[in-house]
Design a protein around this nucleic acid. Sequence first.
DNA 1: CGCACAGTTGACTAACATCAACGGGTGTGG
DNA 2: CCACACCCGTTGATGTTAGTCAACTGTGCG
Lengths: 265, 265
Amino acid sequence: METSTSLATCVSDSGLVQDVFGWRVEPLPVTEPADRESSCSNCHLRTACLPGSLNTEALADFAALARVKRKVKRRAALYRRGDAFHSLYVVRSGSFKSVGVAGIEQQKVTGLYLPADIMALDAICTGVHGYDGIALEDSEVCVVPYERLTQLTLRMPELQSHLLQALSGDIVRDRGLMLRLGSMTAEQRVAAFLLGLSARYQKLGYAGTRFSVRLARHEMASYLGLTVETVCRLLRRLQQDGAIESHLRDMELKDVPALRSLVGY
Amino acid sequence: METSTSLATCVSDSGLVQDVFGWRVEPLPVTEPADRESSCSNCHLRTACLPGSLNTEALADFAALARVKRKVKRRAALYRRGDAFHSLYVVRSGSFKSVGVAGIEQQKVTGLYLPADIMALDAICTGVHGYDGIALEDSEVCVVPYERLTQLTLRMPELQSHLLQALSGDIVRDRGLMLRLGSMTAEQRVAAFLLGLSARYQKLGYAGTRFSVRLARHEMASYLGLTVETVCRLLRRLQQDGAIESHLRDMELKDVPALRSLVGY
DNA sequence: CGCACAGTTGACTAACATCAACGGGTGTGG
DNA sequence: CCACACCCGTTGATGTTAGTCAACTGTGCG
């Protein structure tokens, strides 16, 4: 059971798919059509999502395209490194991490995906998934078949524009993280990570000062290019300084300006 | 004068535009139409470039779109952080770096662009350039107006596909660098950087074992998140170990397997 | 209830940054 | 064309940061 639901990310209730305990599990075999009426038109994430501000008829077309949903249990894989790429995935509820390999069997967390984030954009260029996509909690995604999407975008300039923006946005985010990892101290990285998460949650309509980091300490460390111990120590230091309150994965930002000044903005 | 032309990157001979010495120079005021006949159809970079394998008539359309070239003198800016985004740029000859700010007036090199690379993809999502694009030598780019490009892609599925792949490829590269910066030692970063450059030059048809790093030491250091001194020391170490031969910006990879094993592949 | 693992803390170490100094190449101005 | 200055590149000595090793506690799950 996940520790807390302080974030209330509408985790789907009925888990239909069995998962296996542990890190090495098979990807779920097949996609499953959605029985419930869950079109894009009545999705609370719509404005933040790919269809964005499409008009109603265009929205219907897109909704038909993204009709198939898929549930993924905690720790299960949505896709695996090496799998053939066929679809993009939009996080509908829950959260995911992307995991790559760095060096000899060194796993490294390369991305964190929250609701409305698009996964597998990096696989477009090669046709093969370059990273594992692992659910951090019981989650659900909208499956967007890529071939059909690119056909649809030809008819819908706005959608094409959105897709290009999404890809570009990913580049911006990656490059921002690069800047961070390259030339920031460990403390700055941690602070920047928390501020970044806060901003993303705010965009989703949450408060942004209280949230749950869905990553475990070692995942967080991997993501930031640090060790578990230093992450731990730095969180404690930030807490002692009164900048945050942290208990396991629950975070509360108590002094955002202090965090900002740490990062240098 | 640039130190060497060991790479023979067909730098255009006649410099029409005056540049100003130093780091802070004005962006070139206007684009200039190409007088010479320099269509995509007879460009030696074509297969590696955006149009890729378009058929002849489609190629003509694209060539018309990208007809305008622009020369940029060494150290001059193709665009500046904050400039409105209107066009993508494909490097035709020469090379560029993208420079961002990290913290308080800390400049950081975030990208290195060689011939056939597309610049400013990150600006699509915001409509504003997020980084300075600075020529590392006298260079030339093809100007690709973004609005017109997105209109053209609607008629040309292949081109749309190429564009999406290019964007996705950028994500892959960024993420690869992230993996590097995050969890590699300084020596590994340097080795990985050299191997990466080698691969890119090979794709352009060069040998890949002898090339000129167009970045100065401090730029290289910035790009890799290190200091000038450590980059220096590590290059020396690699040279002592017989893995490379380096004289200023001229590099020769003498033992690629050794470099690979350092990085862990 | 107990095991396994996540999280935390402390002592020590290695890696990299910082500070300082110097040769040499490059670009500029005389 | 030459001289000077500046910056690039390099090297050594020292300092600080974060990684490593080890031990312990807390938590969740079987």
